[in-house]
C-alpha cells in the first residue's frame, strides 16, 4: 500500500495526505522539507536535487517495508530538479493506528532517508555553489 516516488513533479501535500487516509488508522504524521533561505549567514537562492533514481526508490522500499509489516502505511515523495525558496523537497507521511507510532516511524523514515537514499543537493547560495550540506 505504500507509495514511494522520486520525480521532477511538484509535490502536492493534499494528494499525498489522501493516500494515507483509511478507517483503520487514527494518527497520521507528515513531515515536509522545504527550501530554506538562510543557514546562519549563508543565503540560499535555489537548490537542484539529483538522484540515482532506481536505487533511491529501492532504498526507500527497504525503509518502508518493516513499518508496513507492523501495520503502518508509508508515503514518500522526493523532488528532483530545481527548487525555489519554500518549494517542497521531500514529503514523508506515515499513517498508524496510534499517534506515537506515526511520529516515531515518520521521523525514522526521514532520518534514514537522509543517510541511506542516494539523492544529492546542489545549493545555489549568494556567495557560491555548494554540494551537500
Amino acid at each position: 500500500m505504500h507509495y514511494l516516488k522520486i520525480s521532477d513533479d511538484p509535490i502536492n501535500v493534499d494528494a499525498l495526505y489522501q493516500k494515507l487516509v483509511d478507517p483503520q488508522y487514527g494518527g497520521i504524521d507528515m513531515f515536509v522539507g522545504t527550501v530554506r533561505q538562510w543557514t546562519g549567514s549563508i543565503q540560499t537562492t535555489k537548490i537542484t536535487y539529483s538522484a540515482y533514481q532506481p536505487m533511491a526508490e529501492r532504498q526507500l522500499e527497504k525503509i518502508a517495508a518493516p513499518i508496513e509489516a507492523q501495520g503502518g502505511r508509508v508515503v514518500v515523495a522526493h523532488r528532483t530538479g530545481t527548487l525555489e525558496l519554500t518549494d517542497i523537497a521531500v514529503f514523508v507521511g506515515v499513517a498508524a493506528v496510534h499517534r506515537a507510532e506515526a511520529f516515531k516511524w515518520c521521523q525514522h523514515v526521514i532520518d534514514t532517508l537522509k543517510h541511506e537514499v542516494p539523492i544529492w543537493k546542489k545549493e545555489y547560495d549568494t556567495d557560491k555553489v555548494r554540494w551537500g550540506n
Binding site: 522539507g33 536535487y49 538522484a51 540515482y52 536505487m55 533511491a56 522526493h78 523537497a89 521531500v90 526521514i110 532517508l113 537522509k114 543517510h115 541511506e116 537514499v117 542516494p118 539523492i119 544529492w120 543537493k121 554540494w131 551537500g132 550540506n133
Partner: peptide, 9 residues
C-alpha cells in the same frame, strides 16, 4: 556506482 555522501531530504 560510486555514492558520495547523500544530502536529500
Amino acid at each position: 556506482a560510486i555514492i558520495p555522501p547523500v544530502s536529500g531530504g
